[in-house]
């Protein structure tokens, strides 16, 4: 009995390796080797010669050049990092809120869900980038809020004044009003996150809520004591997704690509992307350690 069991496991293991083979080859060929190569590039001076490329090891000069010589690298990097730090909490909060909203029963829920997930298919990559710089759209937008400037200023200015007068912290107020102004960006980037949260909400067993109701918990309490802990692992998943999703829309991408293929500074471009990667890793690590302390695992 024990022997057959073992062979079955062995057979499974062998099949497992076979199933993994395409991925494994791909990983080595298309990921591990290129990433090693990229590290080498970032430490070298690359030059195009008649018989291909020549590479001289120059240590950390490229990294230094990115920070000290490149005209816009520092600014773009800070912007990308700040953008990430500012947007991630907003997107997480908004998507959690929308998911709870969409999880309730009401008429027209199917339609509401269909609309809320539309950004999943529309808001990735090129289309968003094109939208931002469109003249006609901007003109129509400002023409739409009829009184022109006064109207569009009003929208968050009034809110800001009200909140500051009510004694709220100024930096928090400006963060919130900023969020209101960028509502389109936030909404269009939280499609997948809403989806993930909604899936999580659906998987919470209704018996938990029933028990809480019998014990006399209000809806508010039920949210914080049941819903929130149960989907807290997903907050982590969503943070990671949001961060990697920002790669494609970041200005950094354009800069790295241009440095490589417009000005042909391959070494510099690799160094830039490594710095970017390190920054992201640090952000992710901090977020991970902050969140994982609060995360609750059911099993």
């Amino acid at each position: 009995m024990a022997r057959t069991r073992l062979t079955q496991n062995q057979r499974k293991g062998r099949m497992g390796i076979l199933f993994l083979a395409p991925w494994l080859i791909g990983f080595i060929l298309l990921f591990a080797l290129p990433i090693g190569e990229s590290l080498r590039y970032s430490l070298s001076q690359l030059e195009m010669t008649t018989e291909g490329m020549s590479m001289n090891f120059i240590g950390f000069d490229n990294f230094q050049a990115a920070f000290t010589q490149h005209p816009s690298y520092n600014r773009v990097l800070t912007e990308a990092v700040i953008d990430m730090v500012v947007n991630v909490p907003l997107i997480i909060f908004f998507s959690l809120f929308s998911a709870t909203l969409l999880n309730q029963k009401f008429r027209g829920r199917g339609l509401a869900r269909a609309i809320f997930f539309l950004p999943v298919i529309l808001a990735s990559g090129a289309l968003l980038g094109v939208e931002g710089g469109d003249i006609l759209q901007n003109v129509m937008q400002s023409a739409n809020s009829q009184q022109g400037d006064s109207m569009s200023l009003l929208k968050s200015f009034e809110l800001e004044r009200m909140l500051i007068e009510s004694g709220a912290n100024e930096s928090i107020v400006s963060y919130l009003t900023d969020a209101v102004n960028r509502i389109y960006e936030i909404i269009s980037r939280s499609g997948v996150q809403i989806l993930i949260f909604l899936a999580g909400l659906q998987s919470i067993s209704p018996s938990l809520y029933e028990a809480a109701k019998i014990e006399g918990a209000t809806g508010y309490e039920a949210f914080w004591k049941i819903t929130f802990p149960m989907i807290s692992p997903l907050i982590l998943t969503n943070v990671i997704y949001t961060v990697i999703d920002a790669f494609s829309s970041s200005q950094m991408t354009v800069l790295i690509q241009d440095t490589a293929f417009r000005t042909f500074q391959f070494g510099l471009s690799s160094a830039m992307s490594w710095i970017y990667f390190l920054c992201i890793s640090i952000i992710l690590f901090i977020m991970y350690s902050l969140i994982s302390r609060k995360v609750f695992y059911y099993d």
Binding site: F31, L33, T253, A260, S270
Partner: peptide, 16 residues
């Protein structure tokens, strides 16, 4: 592989 930005391996990928 999910976490590494694709730009990091952009140049080697092109060369590949």
């Amino acid at each position: 592989t999910i976490l590494v930005p694709p730009q990091t391996i952009m140049v080697p990928t092109y060369a590949l």
